[in-house]
Design a protein around this nucleic acid. Structure first.
Lengths: 249, 249
DNA sequence: CGCATCCTTGAGGGCCATCAAAATGCGTGG
DNA sequence: CCACGCATTTTGATGGCCCTCAAGGATGCG
């Protein structure tokens, strides 16, 4: 897989847009980006990278683990987006300056940051890289649109199935799709807040997926035999992820 | 209102980001953008500006009317986004090249287009304008996130109330909020497809808003006395629209 | 081994889907 | 001005998904 080679070459940004438009970005641009990223650091489970309304001065790329975009309101939590390694988790804050939501780690997460000053330089000197960064944020928007559709069209078990199908593809892009097991640190409460249902109902939804023989979700980890069956059940269509190849498994 | 002056100066792009970050964009950049836009043209109700998967070569700014982003699947229609005058309706297609959804007119709409070649020139020569265009697409993403939250947190009448509250603010940014009446060409079926409910239930939701004395929706037009009451009912908080001032009324 | 967190199960009720059908505009043409 | 056709809006009835309240079981950690 070509993505893997690039990942080995560039330990920090090697997964950025892998499997998507990365292959069309020049080597110079990619090298420039890699050189712009600071030392990695680790966030613990639940640690907040940036809070709603806070003025951001740097953006982070996720190297390892999962991160969530969270809207809080009246003690309720709405998870509007999930991020996997290779994602520029808060690149939105570069153009927006302040965010409308929090960004937090789900499980331990390793990140590396780029200052906004540096990003400004990059985008002004390298239009190709600027468009790639823009593209990355629009991928997030496309995923948001799909979630809107999912909430309108799917019931709870289908939403959870769709979530895992999507993660499988996105992890596949960056060479991390693990065959018959998809490991996540998500509790059923996390799944509930992603899918817009109660934790109790998320539990029943997980049970339903098991009953249907589509897979087994235990402590966030999905054990599955037939990805195609899960995707069909979830009415999943990978087009909105803008990948150039299918998932690796 | 300062936006109005700029709108008079620039008939095509004068409303672009008005009330948001427009005031921080240099006059040169705004003039460049205005000069880059082609002749306006009118779309009829339901006319499709760009189809899912189609390779786009230009992007359009909405001058008059409403446009929708639509995901189609199995004869069902999901409206994932609504656009008002001043919005760059398919700027996403510049960075994405092909879109994951359709963009269609709701009622008659007047638009003006910019070729992607021209946009490429602009973004490469004017980093300030490039960031403004990027910002505009991230506003769409922020609105998507709010819709996700709305679908998860609000019932049908609240979703409809939230939709109109949002439109009121967004129209206010561009100097088009009309006081006690908000005119739209939306049928109850349109409202249903925006809110993820059946047309029948959208009808009952509209009736509920009337019963509660919050407003009267007739043929898409909202007649209202107390915007604050409607916003409170819809749990509306304008922060996600990134405005610099409140709505005009 | 005690405690906290997470997962599981049951019962009653509300929001919303679907099927079916009627009433209300609204533009067109007689 | 009226008749007609059509889209849109309205209303009723039945059922399913998911909510909340309540309580019991499993799992992991110090």
């Amino acid at each position: 897989m070509e993505g893997t080679v690039l990942i080995n070459d560039m330990p920090l940004t090697g997964a950025f847009l892998a499997g998507r438009m990365r292959e069309r970005i020049s080597c110079e641009a990619l090298t420039l980006l890699e050189a712009s990223v600071g030392q990695p650091r680790v966030l613990v489970d639940g640690e907040r990278l940036i809070a709603r309304g806070e003025r951001a001065t740097s953006s982070a790329i996720l190297l390892e683990g999962y991160m969530l975009r969270v809207i809080r309101r009246d003690d309720r939590r709405f998870i509007v987006s999930v991020h996997v390694p290779g994602d520029f988790v808060d690149l939105h804050s570069f153009a927006l300056k302040r965010l409308d939501h929090d960004v937090v780690a789900a499980g331990p997460a390793r990140i590396a940051t780029v200052s906004h000053d540096r990003l400004r330089e990059i985008t002004e000197t390298d239009p190709e890289l600027a468009r790639a960064l823009w593209f990355a944020t629009l991928l997030d928007a496309s995923i948001h649109r799909q979630w809107i559709r999912n909430l309108e069209a799917l019931d709870a078990p289908q939403r959870i199935a769709h979530l895992y199908a999507e993660l499988h593809h996105r992890l596949g892009f960056v060479g991390r799709s693990g065959g018959r097991t998809l490991r996540t640190p998500f509790t059923q409460t996390d799944l509930a807040d992603m899918c817009g249902v109660s934790a109790i109902h998320a539990n029943r939804a997980v049970a339903r997926i098991r009953e249907l023989g589509l897979g087994e979700i235990r402590r966030g980890d999905l054990y599955i035999g037939d990805w195609a069956a899960l995707e069909a059940y979830a009415d999943f269509d990978a087009g909105y992820l803008y990948g150039e190849a299918g998932p690796s498994s």
